[in-house]
Amino acid sequence: MRLENVWLRYHRRGPWVLRGIDARISPGEVAIVLGRNGVGKSTLLQVAAGVLRPGRGRVTDRPARVGWVPERFPADQPFTVARYLTGMARVAGLGRAAADEAVHSWTDRLGLSAFRSVRLPELSKGTAQKVGLAQAMLRPPGLLVLDEPWEGLDAATRELVPELIDEVLAAEGAVLVSDHRGETVRLPAARRWLVADGALSEEASAADETIAVIEVAVPAARVAGTVARLRAEGHQVLRVRSDAANAAPQARPAEPPRSAGAARPAEPPLETAGEPTAEQPAATDAVVAPAAGEAR
């Protein structure tokens, strides 16, 4: 699939969100779309999926079957999980028996079996997100577009997402995925598309680069923001740990937040595969591997 000089804005006189995007993704490839909040990652993914039509330029060679997992699954619908998924399977062109089989298979695999007869508005955010994932996979897609697919998912399902991606790639499908949680470290062979100021640039694959590790000390209160910013810029945050030596009184807030780290200073450093929380020590060291393009 190719995006050729794609421009997009939401209103006739509004600012351009995408400006002259040129990109290509081939069968068997996965690309991670990175960038800060509001730069147009979701917009780019929706253009690729065929949800949004470019104002200028065009998208060519889009596979016939596209699976799209939106950032927020629309759970405000009067259906149970099973009825919704069966309906979407029928909409995707599956016969009754094939639809039932696909729904059973995917609800089992995504841990939704117990929720089949639960109405969509009653689902938690994470469970609703699984339904969103299931509807995209009911028919094997030639292009799978995942907009923050890890958002709200439990650990087991988070592990499952790269597995699903691998299956799509193995069937000669292509995958586009956005992520601001750093979960895409699970996709080391992925191409990395960076969206900034409406333009797209491609970073060299992390697999092709020598990685350097930088240790950064930040005030504890800014840990979450710093980690999020580093990840948004494409860096891989390896871990966050407390640093008692740097936690000098003048650098310490008047009353540090009651935190697991502060209460257990001897605890080993936090591994940061998950999102850091407010429960951080007063001063921390973040260990960062730079983005592939900056590691030269």
Binding site: G50, V66, W68, P70, R72, D76, Q77, M88
Partner: peptide, 16 residues
Amino acid sequence: VEPDVQRRLAQVTVGV
């Protein structure tokens, strides 16, 4: 009645 995102999901599945 249909949420906007669901309408877009339908577009992706069957075409605009």
